[in-house]
Amino acid sequence: MTTVLDRATASRADDPGPRRRRGRRAVVPYALIVPALLFYAVVVLYPTVAGGVYAFTDWNGRRAATFVGLDNFVQLGTDPAPRSALANTLLIAVSTTLLQTLLGLALALALHTSLVSRNVLRTLFFAPALLPPVIIGFLWQYVLTPSGPMNDALSAVGLGALTQNWLGDPSIALASVIGVIIWQNAGLTMVIYLAGLQGVPEELLEAAAIDGAGRWQRLRRVTLPLLVPATTIAMSLTLIGSLKLFDQVYVMTGGGPGYATETLSVVMYKEAFVSGRYGYSTAIALVLTMIVFAFAFVQLRGLRRFEVDA
């Protein structure tokens, strides 16, 4: 009997089945990851590396690329269109980041109450952020035309003197675009701040009230410091999105009138798909990438220094 058991035990020990099954189970995760990695490499990694290479060439999309060194970047610094676009891009980024953050915070504070209609108002303010930017662009292009609803509404209430060619006047076209961007995305900032307000401990507010702190003091001394993480997220998303803004500007104004509303993304698109200067376009894209990275890094480092724990 002992001999039979020993033989059975030895047979199971020599059976490669369990080891093979363990090996197959170890391979399954990698088999599932490989398709996603290949897709990521083809869609993201290869275009990124290729764009970095083409930025130093005169490639036009058809003939073989010729290495031109830093000529594209030198031209980028002397060409008036990219310089104007850079100024517009930075102005849009700073304006939308500050104004949208303040407006989103004000909306969140106003709707973080026991107001009966707060849920309806939250939905209304957040709804524009769910619409595609192209749809927003076409909508406001119609609203802001000289014979559009905006001027009609101003005339109807006796403010006809305020009617403007909102998108055709170089002096106010960029401000009109900035206003549309803030209108669309302020609701998203509001939602971020509402989530942050949910994390403010009621005990701290009650303790501050017991100590004699008024509503403004509680907001300034307790609520706002605890909302710095939400501010970091909101400002980072707004800054990055506004630096690479394209859809609304291209649909509403096409970058005009003149260079009044052009951004680096619009110039990059025109150079690539209108002028066929893909090498120059990728140089603009590379500069824009470095600008976005630098601004986001500085902003994150600066805001994180003010974060506090609840």
Rank of each mutant, 00 (worst) to 15 (best):
G23A: 11
F246Y: 10
A41P: 09
E203L: 12
L227M: 01
T97I: 03
F67T: 09
L121D: 01
F246S: 03
T263I: 00
I284M: 12
G148M: 05
M150I: 11
L300F: 14
A156H: 10
T145G: 15
A213P: 04
V251F: 09
S275Y: 15
D14Y: 10
V267I: 15
D6R: 13
Y269K: 09
R7F: 08
L103W: 05
T2N: 10
A87F: 06
R118Y: 11
L219N: 07
P201G: 10
G104V: 03
L103Y: 05
M1R: 13
A207S: 13
R20H: 12
R20G: 09
T97R: 00
M1A: 14
Q141C: 02
R83Y: 07
Y46K: 12
G179H: 01
T66F: 07
A272F: 05
P146I: 06
I172G: 07
S236C: 08
T145W: 14
G212Y: 08
I135E: 03
M252R: 00
T253I: 07
G51P: 07
S171N: 13
L107N: 05
F295A: 14
R220C: 08
P257M: 12
L105N: 08
T261D: 04
Y40C: 06
R304Q: 15
L224R: 04
Y269P: 04
L224E: 06
T261R: 02
L103I: 12
T253W: 05
Q75H: 14
V180W: 00
R24V: 12
I136P: 03
L38T: 08
V308P: 05
A156Y: 11
N88Y: 02
A127H: 12
